[in-house]
Design a protein around this nucleic acid. Structure first.
Length: 903
RNA sequence: AGGCGCGUAGCUCAGUGGGAGAGCGCUUCCCUGACACGGAAGAGGUCGGCGGUUCGAAACCGCCCGCGCCUACCA
């Protein structure tokens, strides 16, 4: 390939022809870590910028939602670092109690081991072993994305420090009466064998049935009209075994006389009362509701109001228990079948109708949850929610986009007590000790576990066997990770955090709870802003899920297209307030962009040397094209900066894309090639090479937060002063200069180039052939501009000669285009003109312009427009009218001449 | 049922009171000394519908239609 080794090295030796991300990414990941890129310095004088990563589930693997959120945070972290902040981006993972326990139990099951046989301590040891082996998977995947977290401050919710925070918070809340224990109905997962909080249940609309069951009334003779029975409607007939009442609305005339009477419950023979309750809707079903307090949330509340008994008919597996008598041992669905069959046989099943119902499923294992009565720990949330609501109302914490505040308020204002106990082993064990002798609950005072009962002094106390909801520890994340409850430098420097980036579905689980805990225990909001990013869906707008098989795996995408391409895609689609429909072609498109940038760098390296940077920094004597690109760069810089400050990642990405591809590559590089080849002297060559280098250097800085790998690699190859710094350590660039007048000039020259190119294509001129061109325009200044651009026009439009004249005779054998507000542009075709086509084209043009003129004239003849619209607008419209008139005149002249040629 | 959001070029989406835009796809031509993961030139839209406000509406307001999501105790 290289045959002239004595000359400047062949470009192939500098950079590959096509960008190959793999090696570059591996190299820079290692170097960044070596350089301590993300390591924060709490002693720094710089202002702090803090983010805590939403800790991913330790059992998880990176999905495209993580990839988006990690990318967003990394863009912010790198941007803020370059802007001079002391950035702490703190990474971590949560212990995911239920999910992790499930995973480890499944592993053990393969070896035929049950956790109960193993025992609690041994099992937990197994979980830690598992964590050591697999727990870093997702962290490594985040590193692969380029995440510039402070990996020296990595935290895990089960760390000693964080566990200390959990115990401190639990104890304090209990002592203040904000944590209590009680027997309530909760969501129960019959597969995970634990209680779940309200929001851990996901509702799915399902095709269910509404069963109408006949309940005989005891002593019906006394009732008016001799009513002998009552029909109730239910979606869960099997629960009738646990019915303890039937309720009707007190104002429902159909049933008024029955209130206070009794039902003889079929199949069991129990007698239960008919009660009146406001909650019952007379319109739905039959207006009479069976009440099963142990297995329905509403029924539980109604039971409370009427002091009804609760009969639990299901065990922890949702299998009917001894209270279900002869149905004992059937699971809930088999029980349903048998109960309905038996009722039907007795003639007590009136009818069955199809009915849509919302069924709750466990968010970890999708098993249908069972409302179940049990003793659990709860956080009394209302007193904590108040300040958390206020903090958002008064702007201490702001949501971006703001519309999410409504969701937050909605939930916070209707919040119910939070069930925090879980009947599993993996997690923070509840720091409460029960006394065998007096039933008193003893809490630790300090770090040591209590040994004696606070109440009676007995030493027969045992720690509660439940663990806390994982989200309980997550709620402390913004301050527990900084060292709380110790007083630390990190806490002083970096709390409250600056922004939390997360997805909307986590507002309830996490954001709201962090707000409550942060305010309660730090007296300050945990973050000043909450950026709610988009949800990623597949190309059809469906939620991605493994079962649908429509997931886009970010790891595969990184393999195939490069990490920068994936990151850029995610940024470019991260418009606020809208879901992202992601398709693989998008990523391929931005892979091409990476390659474009790469080749721009190759081109630059071929044309610059170690003196170029200095030459480019001094703007004296630079060319029209140089001034143009510096101006466009300044515009791009401003757009990117404003966009990133406002979390408009799509705007930033698109501005960069269009600047690099269309302005830098398509125009500037093409314009300056003759300069770089020395056609216009050595001085010009050196100057332009300088501007090219400096613009590329600063463009890399702008791009770096979004595409860290490729920009770092190119930057390392540029002959610019680095002082041993990598791009990630550089400051964000500032504009070198802006030249609006010259930029306008070159823009108008480009329009002429566009016009000539258009004429060439329309008239089938071979791409290689040169043509003669004439530009006619009145006004010396306009002609000067074109004259100054003559070289550019000749080169980029392949014109052999260009003549600039005032408006006048049409050149022989030519076709033309009128540039609005610019010249009439001709190219000569020497007898190759298709007169008919040309005539048609011009006629079409004229028709279009006349139509527009009509609209504009209409505006101007409307006195209220002229009077009321701002002057600038009216002036603009007037100028436009002149432009159009001029254009029409030229077109008409042209048409006349063309017609003459046809004869 | 309530809340939020969306409906702009074939597809994905910007635009949010004064001349309809981008990317991808498509058509035609071109391997010109950074790049075919490329270059040049094009075609393509009653801005969901109907009313209203305004000199002026894709944008603001109201209603309607369609779609999505979240919340909810109609069993």
């Amino acid at each position: 390939m290289t045959d002239t080794p004595t000359e400047t090295p062949d470009t192939e030796e500098i950079l590959e022809k096509v960008y190959e991300p793999k090696a570059v990414e591996t190299k820079w990941r290692a170097l960044w870590e070596e350089h301590g890129l993300g390591t924060a310095d709490a002693m720094s004088e710089k202002p702090p910028f803090t983010m805590v990563i939403p800790p991913p589930n330790i059992t998880g693997a990176l999905h495209v939602g993580h990839a988006l959120n990690t990318t967003i945070q990394d863009i912010l972290a790198r941007y803020k670092r370059m802007k001079g902040f002391s950035v702490l981006w703190l990474p971590g993972i949560d212990h995911a109690g239920i999910a992790t326990q499930n995973v480890v139990e499944r592993e053990l099951a393969k070896e035929g081991i049950d956790r109960h046989a193993l025992g609690r301590d041994a099992f937990i040891e197994k979980v830690w072993e598992w964590k050591e082996r697999y727990g870093s998977t997702i962290l490594n995947q985040q590193k692969r994305l380029g995440a510039s977290c402070d990996w020296t401050r990595l935290r895990f919710t089960m760390d000693e420090g964080l566990s200390k925070a959990v115990r401190e918070v639990f104890t304090k809340l209990y002592k203040e009466g904000l944590i209590y224990r009680g027997n309530y109905i909760v969501n129960w997962c019959p597969r995970c064998h634990t209680a779940l909080s309200d929001i851990e249940v996901q509702f799915e609309e399902t095709d269910g049935k509404l069963y109408y069951m006949v309940y005989p009334i005891v002593d019906s003779d006394g009732a008016k009209g001799g009513v002998k029975s009552l029909t109730v409607a239910t979606t869960r007939p099997e629960t009738m075994l646990g019915d303890t009442a039937v309720a009707v609305n007190p104002t429902d005339e159909r049933y008024m006389d029955l209130i206070g009477k009794k039902i003889k419950l079929p199949l069991t023979g129990r007698e239960i009362p008919i009660v009146a309750d406001e909650h019952v809707s007379a319109e739905f079903g039959t207006g009479a509701v069976k009440i099963t307090p142990a297995h329905d949330f509403n029924d539980f509340e109604i039971a409370g109001r009427h002091s009804l008994e609760s009969i639990n008919i299901l065990d922890i597996n949702a299998v009917l228990n001894e209270n279900a008598h002869k149905y004992e041992g059937l699971d809930r669905y088999a029980g349903r079948k048998k109960v309905t069959e038996d009722l039907d046989a007795l003639g007590l099943l009136e009818k069955v109708e199809p009915h849509k119902i919302m069924i709750g499923e466990c968010y970890r294992c999708s098993t249908v949850v069972e409302p179940r009565l049990s003793r659990q720990w709860f956080v009394k949330v209302k007193p904590l929610a108040g300040p958390a609501i206020e903090a958002v109302e008064n702007g201490s914490t702001a949501f971006v986009p703001k519309s999410w505040e409504k969701t937050y308020f909605e939930w916070m204002r209707n919040i119910r007590d939070w069930c925090i106990s879980r009947q599993i082993w993996w997690g923070h064990r509840i720091p409460a000790w029960h006394c065998e002798e007096c039933a008193h609950i003893t809490l630790p005072d300090g770090e040591a576990d209590p040994v004696l009962c606070d109440g009676c002094g007995s030493d027969k106390i045992a720690q509660d066997s439940d663990v806390l909801d994982t989200w309980f520890s997550s709620a402390l994340w913004p301050f527990s990770t900084l060292g709380w409850p110790e007083t630390t430098e990190d806490l002083a420097k970096y709390y409250p955090t600056s922004v939390l980036s997360t997805s909307f579905d986590i507002i309830f689980f996490w954001v709201a709870r962090m707000m409550m805990m942060g305010l309660k225990f730090r007296g300050e909001v945990p973050f000043k802003e909450v950026y709610i990013h988009a949800l990623i869906r597949d190309f059809e707008g469906k939620k991605m899920s493994k079962s649908k098989g429509n997931v886009i795996d970010p790891l595969i995408m990184m393999d195939e297209y490069g990490t920068d391409a994936l990151r850029f895609t995610l940024a470019a689609f991260a418009a606020q307030g809208r879901d992202i429909k992601l398709a693989e072609e998008r990523i391929a498109g931005y892979r091409n962009f990476c390659n474009k940038l790469w080749n721009l760098a190759r081109f630059t390296l071929m044309n610059v040397d170690e003196n170029s940077e200095e030459a480019g920094t001094e703007t004296e004597g630079i060319s029209l094209a140089d001034k143009w690109i510096l101006t466009k760069f300044a515009d791009c810089l401003q757009t990117v900066e404003e966009a990133l400050d406002a979390y408009q990642f799509d705007t930033a990405a698109k501005a960069l894309y269009s600047f690099v591809w269309h302005e830098l590559c398509d125009w500037y590089v093409e314009l300056i090639k003759p300069d770089l080849w020395g056609d216009n002297g050595e001085e010009r060559k050196a100057k332009t090479a300088g501007v090219l280098l400096v613009v590329l250097r600063d463009t890399l800085k702008l791009l770096h937060p979004i595409m860290p790998f490729i920009t770092e690699e190119i930057y390392a190859n540029l002959p610019v002063e680095k002082d041993g710094r990598g791009l990630h350590e550089e400051e964000f660039p500032v504009a070198i200069g802006a030249y609006p007048e010259e930029t306008k000039e070159l823009d108008s020259i480009m329009e002429v180039i566009g016009a000539i190119r258009n004429l060439r294509t329309e008239n089938n001129v071979k791409p290689g052939a040169s043509v003669e061109s004439t530009c006619q325009i009145d006004g010396a200044a306009a002609r000067d501009t074109l004259q100054r651009g003559a070289e550019y026009i000749e080169r980029l439009a392949r014109v052999s000669s260009i003549t600039v004249t005032p408006t006048g005779e049409r050149p022989l054998d030519s076709v033309s285009i009128v540039v609005s507000g610019g010249p009439e542009v001709f190219i000569s075709l020497k007898g190759l003109i298709d007169v008919e086509a040309e005539t048609k084209k011009i006629e079409g043009e004229i028709a279009k312009e006349i139509a527009e003129r009509k609209v504009i004239e209409g505006k101007l003849s409307n006195s209220s427009f002229v009077d009321k619209a701002p002057e600038a607008v009216v002036a603009k419209v007037r100028a436009r009218l002149m432009e159009i008139n001029e254009k029409i005149e030229k077109l008409e002249n042209g048409l006349e001449r063309i017609r003459g040629m046809g004869k």
